[in-house]
Each structure stands twice: as structure tokens, then as C-alpha cells.
Design a protein around this nucleic acid. Sequence first.
DNA 1: GTCAGTGCAAACTTTTTGCAACTAC
DNA 2: GTAGTTGCAAAAAGTTTGCACTGAC
Lengths: 160, 160
Amino acid sequence: MDNVKDRVKQIFTEYLRINKHRKTPERFAILDAIYSIDGHFDIETLYGIMLKKENFRVSRATLYNTIVLLLDAKLLIKHAFGNTAQYEKSFNIETHHHLICTTCGRVSEFQDEELQRDITNVDLKKFQMSHYSLYIYGTCGRCAAAARRKRKQIQEKEKK
Amino acid sequence: MDNVKDRVKQIFTEYLRINKHRKTPERFAILDAIYSIDGHFDIETLYGIMLKKENFRVSRATLYNTIVLLLDAKLLIKHAFGNTAQYEKSFNIETHHHLICTTCGRVSEFQDEELQRDITNVDLKKFQMSHYSLYIYGTCGRCAAAARRKRKQIQEKEKK
DNA sequence: GTCAGTGCAAACTTTTTGCAACTAC
DNA sequence: GTAGTTGCAAAAAGTTTGCACTGAC
């Protein structure tokens, strides 16, 4: 499925042409790196991946610069859970929703086509939707189980 | 409708009691300030409001500390659009959804009970939802109109 | 009286910016 | 050749932390 990488490269090239930006090797290396990552990543992670996997050294400043372009080109989505901005490739990716555990902080994803349809079909009057993010906060199964165990322990202690 | 402020004060008092935290004047002043703000705010704005409106001087550190408690007590919701964390009172507030214009950055809100029902009824297996945030990105009516005007101008220039 | 909580300043983290060097065009 | 880009380092912005002092209990 590497034609995804080819497709996004095409789209980005076109975007750069139209907006009169230069086609620098840094930009394409960053795009390529991003499209080899599954799921979310922050700048620091991307920086590390570029170094290791792509064997391409770019400065953080260039990462930030390029990310602005990719966001604008709709090839990247920016999330904002936690303190650091999280990014995620967006081309050819199924829209998914996020579950964020407020206890352990873990973020997982789920898909629900019906929900997706409900959201994209909402009447927003003059507002033109380009994309959306749904974050559901709560307690994940693991943390709920841990909390139950803890409660049980306390109860048993009180019995003694 | 100032019984909202009284109610949240009660809830917070109870929360502090159960969790063995002290009932300091700072904490209640912050709670009061937050519940006089409509819509979103960040720490800096809250800091300013405390100074002016409530005439109560607290350090930023205390704001951050107290906000953790209020989040835990479910009296406050944390949002994350833009760079800075945004907060919003949550008690007795209708769940609403957010429209974020990617051109001008303005954030507006809308309600849709059916959509709200659709989201809260999704089957999340073992995950227990406490609340959710829906952010819809796109172009607001104003910016779309501005873009149309601009496009028209360019076209007319090309005719000459 | 004790210790949680506060204010302050320093530290830390993430992101932005200014500037000299570089290179795509 | 030149203007857009890059890398670096410094600065800015937002948040956290350490510590001495204060005040809720």
C-alpha cells in the first residue's frame, strides 16, 4: 500500500506549486516520515523518527514550519490532548473517534460509522465543516478494574 | 440564578471534605470567578479576572493547583484548542459542541440534542464515558464570505 | 501546633522568532 | 542572482516545581 505515500507526495507537490512554496528535500522527508507513523505523534517523537528511520536530520524549526504547510494541505491533523500538540496523518485514513482515560491518560481509538454519519450530517448553517475530532473522556476498562480491586482491598482491610 | 454558584460551592466543599483538602478562601474565590465567566477562558484570563472583578489576588501556581481539584470534582472541563489550555465551567451547563474556524481561529458553540443523544448512546464496551468534546473544524460563514469576495476581486482583475 | 496550601521565583517544556548560511528556482 | 528555507540559538509562552512562609484545622 505504498501508493498512499506516492499519492500524498503528489498532493503535497501540487499544494507547494499552487502556493508558490519550494519543493525542498526536507519537506518530502518529513511527509514521508509522517506517513510511516501509525497513530499519534508529537514533534519530539517525529524528530527522533526522522533521525533513526529516515536517517534525515532536520531542525525542530523546520518540523514546525513544514507541519503548518501539511495542516493547510489537509494532509495532517492536529490534536490537542495532554500538554503537547499531537499530530496524525489524515489522507486515506478512516475517521475515528478518541477515547481518553482520565486516570491513566491512555488514548485509544474506535470507529463507528453510524456516529460518523450523524456528526457529518449535522446542519451547521453557514459553517462549512472540513473535519472534526471527537474526544470521549472517562475511565478505561483497565483502570475501572484496578479501581474495583482497590475498593475491594480497602473493604477487606476494614473487616479485620 | 445565583443558586448555581451556591450549588457548586456546596459541591466543592463536599469534595474538599471527602478528599481531606483544606477549604481555603483562595479556592472558593477561584471557583466563584470561574462561575462568573461565560464560555472559555485560559489561565491568564482567569488571573486577570480574579484581579479586577473579584479583587482577589492569587498566584498562578494556586490557579493551576485549584484547577486540578475542580477538574477532579467535575466542576470544570478542560479544552485544548490552540496552544493554551482552555477551561470552561461544567456544572448545570448544557452540553454543547464547538465550531472552530481554521481561518480566523474563532470558536463558537452550538447545541444539537439529537447529536448529543447519538454520542452519549454509543456503545464503548468497557470504557465508561464521563463527558466528551466535539470539535468541528472548517470555515465560518464570515470567512467563507470573505474568501468569496477575494476570489471575485481576483477574477475581475484578470478580466482587465 | 502541625502540615496542607500559598506566593514567589526559578526551572522546565514546548513553540516561535531572528539571523546568517544555504539552495531551489 | 535572489528570495524562500533551513539550522541554530535565543526568546517567548505556558506550566511545573522547590522552598520559605502562612493559616486552616
